[in-house]
Nucleic acid binder design. Structure first.
Length: 146
DNA sequence: GACTTGATTGTTTAG
DNA sequence: CTAAACAATCAAGTC
C-alpha cells in the first residue's frame, strides 16, 4: 500500500456516508483527461497558503515518536515509527483516538481561520467590511503569459 | 524518497 | 450556481 495512503484510502469516508443512491453520480462517466486538475495545480500559485495541520494520526505519531524512541533509540525515522504507530493506531479504540482527534479538530479550527484569509478575506480579520476591496485580488496576472 | 494515515482542498459532474 | 462525489495532493521526521 505504498500509495495507498493518500490516494485510495482517503475516499473511505465518502463510501461510508453513502448519501443517496438516487444521485447515481457514483462514478463520473466521462473523465475528460484523467485529471486535468493536476495540471492546473501547477498553475496554482498561493501567496501564503496555510499548511495543513497534523491529523489525529499525526498528533498521535508525535507522541508515539517519543515513546517509540525510548524503546528504540536506534529507530527514529517516521518510516519505522509510522509502521508501528499505524499498527497500533488501528488497534486503538475510537475512545483512545478521541483525545487525538480533539486536538486535530482544534488545529483544524485554527487552520480554517487561516483559510478565510487565504480565501482573500483579509478584511474579515478586521471584522469591518468597509474599505475598498473589490478590484484587483491578486495582481499575479502580470506574470501570466497568455 | 521512504512510510504511515488522515484531512483538506479543488476540480468534476450533473441538474 | 449549488450540492455531492470524487481525485489528488500534502502534512512530519530522520536516514
Amino acid at each position: 500500500m505504498k500509495g495507498a495512503g493518500g490516494k485510495g484510502a482517503a475516499r473511505n469516508s465518502v463510501e461510508a456516508l453513502r448519501p443517496v443512491d438516487d444521485r447515481k453520480v457514483g462514478k463520473r462517466k466521462a473523465p475528460v483527461d484523467k485529471r486535468q486538475t493536476k495540471k492546473d495545480r501547477k498553475a496554482m500559485k498561493d501567496p501564503n497558503k496555510p499548511k495543513r495541520p497534523p491529523s489525529a494520526f499525526f498528533v498521535f505519531l508525535e507522541e508515539f515518536r517519543a515513546v517509540f524512541k525510548k524503546e528504540n533509540p536506534n529507530v527514529k525515522a517516521v518510516s519505522a515509527v509510522g509502521k508501528a504507530a499505524g499498527e497500533k493506531w488501528k488497534s486503538m479504540s475510537p475512545a483512545d483516538k478521541e483525545p487525538y482527534e480533539a486536538k486535530a479538530k482544534k488545529l483544524k479550527a485554527n487552520y480554517e481561520k487561516q483559510m478565510d484569509i487565504y480565501n482573500g478575506k483579509e478584511s474579515a480579520a478586521n471584522g469591518e467590511e468597509s474599505k475598498s476591496e473589490v478590484h484587483d485580488e491578486e495582481e499575479e496576472g502580470s506574470g501570466e503569459v497568455i
